[in-house]
Design a protein around this nucleic acid. Structure first.
Length: 305
DNA sequence: AGAGACTAGGATGGGTCATA
DNA sequence: TATGACCCATCCTAGTCTCT
């Protein structure tokens, strides 16, 4: 039989999920209350997505393995609407950043000359999110084209992963690109700035950060991967009507355009599909239980052995 | 009922070729 | 040599099916 102390450890492990679930519910409740204002213009598809997101991680099974003192979650329903759902956005962020940092670290071990940099590219603000997305995709395509020619600084990039992000201010929709770059030759920030300015509508900002100077490069890269693959601002915990309108605009744009907000190329094109987590021998003894989300908390119950 | 396997279709990176 | 057009293999996403 499982002790109270171990059950507390199980509860502690899933506390972050509880927090996410509460934030998610706040968003959904505001959406529900404001459906006339926010979602009446949209079709049944959005309604269905919201209903699915409502049920996301409503309950899950957990298993505790006393020999290895590990707790795992299983049999959970995730809605997978990562553009809309806070929980699925965070989950995807963890999966992607692990894939990316594992691949980068593996390449660094093989090639000692490789350097890792973080590049941020921005464009002028646009009136609507559709235009901001189209323009960013167009300029991103131009980078891959000019990168073939040796006269460009972008040619030094050997591999990259990145994401497209949006924010909204009174000046309109602001789109920008975050990229993690692999290269062996030093990159000249000024030259990159000039080249980006030439192919885009006059970028007003570009930033290049070399990760070599950081104290623990591997941790830095891991955090960088998390940052670059982080959920869009519009999957985040904003629960006022204005923010929700933006969130829905973002969601509809992604659906309409089949938007792919994460991308990779060169040495980092095609990430390993194999999951990298430690497998637990299912034959080892374990205690199983169920967690159901009620009254803003998960209620944990151990199942009979 | 949920997770994972599978599939179809769209998007994209990169190779090739023609042209200036 | 640089660049644009075109094409194809590969990747990603969404949807469906199957197994437990």
């Amino acid at each position: 039989m499982m002790h109270e102390k171990e059950l507390t450890a199980v509860k502690d492990k899933f506390l972050p999920l509880e927090e996410l679930k509460n934030n998610q519910n706040e968003i959904i409740s505001v959406l529900e209350k404001s459906k006339d204002e926010v979602i009446s213009f949209e079709h049944a598809y959005l309604r269905n997505c919201i209903d699915k997101t409502k049920k996301c991680a409503e309950y899950f099974k957990w298993s505790y393995y006393p020999l290895s003192n590990k707790t795992e979650r299983s049999n959970t329903f995730f809605c997978k609407n990562h553009h809309l759902c806070l929980i699925c956005a965070q989950r995807r962020n963890v999966i992607k950043s692990n894939e990316w940092s594992n691949k980068i670290n593996a390449l660094l071990k093989v090639n000692k000359l490789l350097q890792v940099s973080h590049l941020i590219l921005t464009i002028k603000n646009k009136k609507n999110i559709d235009e901001a997305y189209e323009v960013l995709i167009k300029y991103k395509g131009k980078i891959t084209k000019i990168a073939r020619s040796k006269k460009y600084e972008f040619n030094k990039i050997l591999g990259y992963v990145g994401s497209i992000e949006f924010t909204k201010s009174e000046n309109g929709w602001h789109g920008h690109i975050h990229m993690i770059l692999l290269h062996t030759e030093n990159l000249n920030s000024l030259k990159l700035h000039r080249e980006w300015g030439k192919i885009s509508d006059a970028a007003h900002y570009i930033e290049l950060i070399d990760t070599k100077s950081s104290e623990n490069q591997l941790t830095y890269i891991k955090n960088l991967c998390k940052y670059v693959s982080k959920p869009s601002q519009f999957s985040a915990q904003k629960n006022n009507i204005h923010e929700l309108n933006l969130k829905i605009e973002f969601f509809i744009m992604c659906r309409k355009k089949h938007a792919r907000l994460l991308f990779s190329g060169g040495l980092l094109r095609g990430l390993d599909k194999e999951p990298n987590y430690e497998k637990i021998d299912l034959a080892t003894p374990r205690y199983e239980g169920i967690a159901i989300f009620k009254n803003k908390k998960y209620q944990y119950r151990q199942l009979a052995a």
